[in-house]
Every structure is written in structure tokens, then in C-alpha cells.
Design a protein around this nucleic acid. Structure first.
Lengths: 135, 135
DNA sequence: TTCCTTGCAAATCGTTTGCATAATG
DNA sequence: CATTATGCAAACGATTTGCAAGGAA
């Protein structure tokens, strides 16, 4: 139960804090593996889950079948590009009221919600219109 | 490319239309299998995907690692109980504005959002308070 | 007869886990 | 020394896929 220090865990968290995209477990593995060739995928998974349970990082399930991880644990929403798959933080006004709206006529207790947005990111939008006008 | 009729596909869709919970592929399989013992799991998966692509049913990814399917394709939101895992349709006022809110200061194009709510359903709430007062 | 669909089993993919060993407190 | 963490490989669960045979147009 008592937590012990581990260099692997430190490196994983540090790597995650240095990224503003939202890497998957094997991206974390691939990168940490460069500086620490002995680390195993299992250890990466174990530590990502542990850190998520501790609340030190966030696990994102964005419907693409793969878990993404985010070192930014402050409440915020994500956008996922349908073209390139990139995950982007959104700066937006609060929509916390939707939990109350949903609970207004509901028999149980609503604790929270999961929301993410999708569409075409800035980059992919440009590429599309460029390809369009080019022809 | 041309779609051909299949009894299996019909049964799968019919089964789904008769349910107001949101079954997973193997629940669909287990049930259809009773009336049609020869059907295979692969066929169930293939047809659920096909129907979802055609827009005849909806695929729900609710973060529990398993896909759920819903024959009700009208826009509505879902609640998932953290205790018992049941998936319940919500009757609630529109929150479609959140897409605009999210897009207000965003560089790309937001096409839509995915939202679901979680908490304790009516049943599980009662069980909890009963267990509490019983002691 | 064309070619879509099926059943079956093997394959894939992301993730978890058992176990003996190494590292931490 | 008591335990937690690791590396490795095997196990897992959900879903997909290749292929030969069956069924619809």
C-alpha cells in the first residue's frame, strides 16, 4: 500500500508534463524508452494507471479505442480532430450547468459528465481548403 | 457495395429495437442466438458495425471499454450508473449550445460533441440509502 | 452466375497480470 | 528486512479479419 519511489514513474510523469498533446501509453513508452532502454511497456501501463488513480494525471477516453493521458489535471475540455486525430485543449466558458440540466428530471443522482468535441482542427481545415482551391 | 438482404441482420436490428437498455455486442449475440442458433459472433459484430455506418443504429462509447448499441437514433443523451453500469436515456432540455461555446475561441471547425453523464441511478440510490439506514 | 453475407477460427490490438528478480525505505 | 516496483512474457477481452461455403439478386 505504501508508495515507493521509482525512477521509471518519475520519467513517465516528467515526460507527460512536457507534452501538450495527449499521448497514448505506447507513445509514452516509445519516448521514455529512448532515455531508459530497459523500461517495459507493462511498467508504463502500470504507472499511468497508478498516476491516474492518484489523480496526478488524467486518463482520457476519446472514443478512438485508445486511452490518452494528460498531465494537466485542471478541469478543461478537449477537441479531437476527425482528420488527423490530434487532441487539443479547449479554452472555453464553463458548461458545468449541463450537469444540472441533465439532472432536472432524473430519478438518480448525477455526479458529473464526460464531454469532448470533434470536427476539423485548424491545420486540417487549411489543408482542405488549399487542396480545394488548388484544383 | 450493393447491400443484400440477410435474415441475421434483420434479427439483430429487430432485437435492438425491442430494447430500451443499450446492449453490447455479446448481449445481442446471446439473445439472437436463442432464436437463431447458427449465428456467429462475427456476424453480429459485422452487422452492428454496418448498421451503425448506415446510421440505422447508434454506437455508444461510454468509457467502459465496451461498445453499446442503441436503435434509437434520435438525438438524446445517456446516463451511465457508476454502481450497476446500466445505461439510461435522459429526457432533458437541449444543451446543443455547448458546441457554439466550445467553438467561440477555436481555430478549427467544431462539428459536434459527445457527452454522457454518470452518477448513481434511481435504483442504486435507493439500495444505498436502505443499506445505510439498516445499519 | 455474380458477389454479398455467413460461420468459423485465427489474428489483432490495447491492456492487464503472474512471477521471479531488483530496488526502495 | 519487509515490501513495493520492475521486466518479461503469457494471458485477456473486445473486436476484426481471411477464407471457403452459403444465400440473395
Amino acid at each position: 500500500m505504501a508508495l515507493k519511489h521509482s525512477k521509471q514513474r518519475d520519467m513517465i510523469k516528467e515526460f507527460l508534463m512536457g507534452r501538450k498533446d495527449h499521448p497514448t501509453a505506447d507513445v509514452v513508452y516509445a519516448n521514455v524508452h529512448i532515455q531508459y532502454p530497459n523500461i517495459s511497456l507493462g511498467t508504463v501501463y502500470r504507472n499511468l494507471s497508478l498516476l491516474a488513480d492518484l489523480g496526478e494525471i488524467k486518463r482520457l477516453r476519446l472514443g478512438d479505442g485508445v486511452d490518452h493521458f494528460d498531465a494537466d489535471t485542471s478541469p478543461h475540455y478537449h477537441f479531437i480532430c476527425s482528420e488527423c486525430g490530434s487532441v487539443i485543449d479547449l479554452k472555453m466558458n464553463s458548461i458545468e450547468t449541463i450537469t444540472d440540466i441533465a439532472g432536472a428530471d432524473f430519478d438518480g443522482q448525477i455526479a458529473g459528465h464526460v464531454t469532448y468535441f470533434y470536427g476539423t482542427c485548424g491545420n486540417c481545415s487549411k489543408v482542405q481548403s488549399a487542396a480545394h482551391s488548388a484544383h
